[in-house]
């Protein structure tokens, strides 16, 4: 059964130095508040996993919390580069970053294999592409039925997966909807999971029977953090702050402005600070 905890407790209990950590969210529902708590608690040597590492992973890489990253697209969507990620790969600042690079299709399949408790995932992928030459974790198998050669990649099995969702009930059942990405697979593939939510309610009341619901017995910890996905968004609660994504380009371009931003907005801040993003949007709506 999931325990309903404070963010500090949930991270302290579930994220350890050296862990393989997936903080998922495909543009939508990115667990920023939880990621900031990981930075505040000074976690180090993490191996980060995510299909689309964006600003949150740029922050974790920039503070030196990560020893490596497995990913398929590492940019600021529609804006350009992740400057902290680039600085780590190109100049090893603040420390070298080991990378394991895949395609989206391979990562999505690898999470699904993890959730299905299989050792690897199979796809018709990487044909004619150079990634298999630089990533030894991309191999091939021959189909025993047709003889077709297919790509295989190892299943993703994080020590802990962290996601953000719209709401949970008091038992810790979790609901998410809208662009649901790969979060269900990422939670079910992991040993432990933390879900931050906009609201904790008496009844989940799924608006559609096809909403993604993760039962309390498949989740480790649930934390109430309204606004916790800002500057990404929570469908039905507040929109994506495209203005912040654009502004990040300047903040992250320079090591000093980045470090000052982290001090003011992460190290000297607290989870409750995210609530103003949700509240501001509710007032505007």
């Amino acid at each position: 059964m999931a325990r309903i905890l404070s963010l500090a407790e949930a991270v302290a209990e579930n994220v350890k130095d050296g862990d393989t950590v997936a903080m998922e969210g495909f543009t939508h529902l990115i667990p920023y508040a939880a990621g900031h708590e990981v930075i505040r608690q000074g976690r180090k040597d993490l191996f980060l996993v995510r299909m689309t590492p964006d600003i949150l992973y740029d922050q974790l890489i920039g503070v030196g919390a990560a020893r490596g990253m497995k990913f398929s697209w590492g940019g600021n969507p529609g804006v350009g580069s992740l400057h902290r990620f680039r600085d780590a790969v190109e100049n090893q600042w603040p420390r070298p970053l080991e990378i394991e690079e895949h395609s989206h299709a391979a990562m999505a399949n690898a999470y699904e294999a993890g959730a299905a408790n299989l050792p690897f995932a199979t796809l018709r992928g990487y044909i004619g592409a150079d990634l298999p030459k630089v990533n030894p974790n991309i191999k091939s198998v021959t189909c025993p039925f047709t003889g077709e050669v297919l790509a295989v990649v190892p299943a993703i099995r994080p020590d802990v997966t962290i996601i953000h969702a719209q709401r949970a009930d008091r038992k810790g059942n979790v609901l998410l909807e809208g662009i649901v990405g790969v979060q269900k697979e990422a939670v079910l593939a992991a040993k432990r999971s933390i879900v931050t939510v906009e609201e904790i309610v008496d009844e989940l009341n799924p608006p559609s029977p096809n909403s993604v619901v993760l039962p309390t017995w498949a989740v480790t910890a649930v934390v109430h953090v309204p606004g916790g996905a800002f500057p990404s968004y929570a469908h039905g609660y507040y929109p994506r702050s495209n203005a912040f994504y654009i502004a990040w380009d300047e903040i992250a371009r320079d090591r000093e402005t980045f470090t000052a931003w982290i001090k003011e907005n992460v190290l000297d801040a607290k989870p409750e600070d995210f609530a103003r993003h949700a509240a501001k949007s509710a007032k505007a709506a």
Binding site: P77, G78, I179, P239, N242
Partner: peptide, 29 residues
């Protein structure tokens, strides 16, 4: 026009929305 491939505008105006594994497995592959 969306800034990212996952802006809320895309989901709000879609006929339907699927998970990312479904997107790549059933529809693309």
């Amino acid at each position: 026009l969306p800034l990212s491939i996952g802006d809320g505008e895309l989901c709000d105006t879609a006929l339907f929305t699927v998970s990312v594994p479904e997107m790549f497995r059933y529809w693309l592959q």
